[in-house]
Design a protein around this nucleic acid. Structure first.
Lengths: 218, 218
DNA sequence: GTCTATATGTTGATAGAC
DNA sequence: GTCTATCAACATATAGAC
């Protein structure tokens, strides 16, 4: 009994390893040639197996895209979290997360395109794969609320509308950078280097009425 | 001699008509299913001809994309120009053009994606096809300069940097709208309805130092 | 000049042998 | 789980009818 269980556990583990390898290759293809270049055959080729065998792990190409989408969301969430964990919750962490977001998009332009645009005809990510991004969104939303409570931003910033404006700024910067100067670094990119100015613009737009008020000491 | 010339002219005209029809169909496919769904076969099918015949009009699928790109640029330029022709050169026309830009992107989401993102692996638009967009860019650049001269914006707005920021705002709004709520109208879209606020934010960011100064009468 | 016919190689996907 | 065989659809290209 114990043997059977451990065997099936081993089989499942092996299976998961293969799936993981497939996704690593898929991500590499995305990075090298863009999201549209992912094919079942190419992944199978890199795995050293035949294309039909991959269908034992994924029911369709779209499901591979969905897994890639989930993976990308998990990665960007982890990256942003790591980059902002030392920042103070509130405005400071909002800005740190925002910068991290643009940085990550430039590190993983293919994945970013899959996450934030819709480059694959007919592919719509599943609700599941979307989940990590909602989590990040919530954390952001909360930081804005904190920033308002701290007096760093006007109450207008504590809103879905303000969140969307922030997304607009970040996705706009990333997409223009990727489309027009894909090989630049974060600091050299003519668009990515606008990040701080865009964030300043956003903060000024939501400046609290007591304009020159200092943040109270704690 | 005259007959020969007029005949060849007619042939060229017929040829151009076919090319035009092909592009109309290609654009329809883009609108219906996204840029990645354009195939030589599908265009040929809609034209009522065999796929290989299309290769007499276009050397490759990429060249069709390039023609589509040029066509899209021409269309958006015409649309923006028409929408802003009655506006006063300077800040007013900048804002009118900006709004028109977002509106057009929502009318032609597929073409907009082709123009402002890079959804097709390996496809890079030719310099020629880019030309109309540079023209629009120049007109915008000039309107910003005029706005600064008129005292409507600070001198910081008369810069490539400010132009890029404006592009970031508009492409960000369009891309987020298309990715998250593709079927909404301009007025109902949760992102497209941010357009005016984004422009306000931009204008405030470049507010001239003499803050309350009125624009001089002419 | 434009078309049809045809051929090669690739794709996503399924069925079935082992 | 992996393979071969197979299918339809695709991009691309050439030969040749008209």
């Amino acid at each position: 009994m114990a043997t059977t269980l451990s065997q099936s556990a081993r089989v499942r583990a092996r299976r998961d390893v293969t799936i993981e390898h497939a996704l690593v290759h898929a991500q590499a293809i995305v990075t090298e040639q863009g999201a549209g270049a992912v094919t079942v055959s190419e992944i199978a080729r890199r795995l050293g197996m035949r294309a039909p065998s991959l269908y034992k792990y994924f029911p369709s190409l779209h499901s591979i895209y969905d897994a890639l989408f989930a993976r990308g969301n998990a990665r960007v969430t982890a990256f942003v979290q790591a980059a902002s964990q030392d920042a103070e919750p509130g405005l400071e962490r909002t800005l740190a997360s925002a910068r991290a977001m643009v940085r990550w998009s430039m590190q993983e332009p293919g994945l970013a395109a899959l996450l934030y645009w819709r480059p694959i005809p007919g592919f719509v990510p599943s609700e599941e794969s979307f989940a990590p991004s909602r989590q990040m969104w919530e954390q952001w939303r909360e930081d804005l609320r904190t920033a308002v409570r701290d007096g760093d931003l006007a109450s207008s910033a504590d809103s879905e509308r303000a969140m969307r404006m922030l997304t607009v700024l970040l996705s706009g910067i990333s997409s223009q950078q990727m489309a027009n100067q894909p090989d630049a670094s974060y600091d050299d990119g003519v668009f990515s280097s606008l990040t701080d100015e865009a964030l300043e613009m956003f903060v000024r737009h939501h400046q609290p009425s007591g304009n020159t008020r200092e943040k109270e000491a704690r």
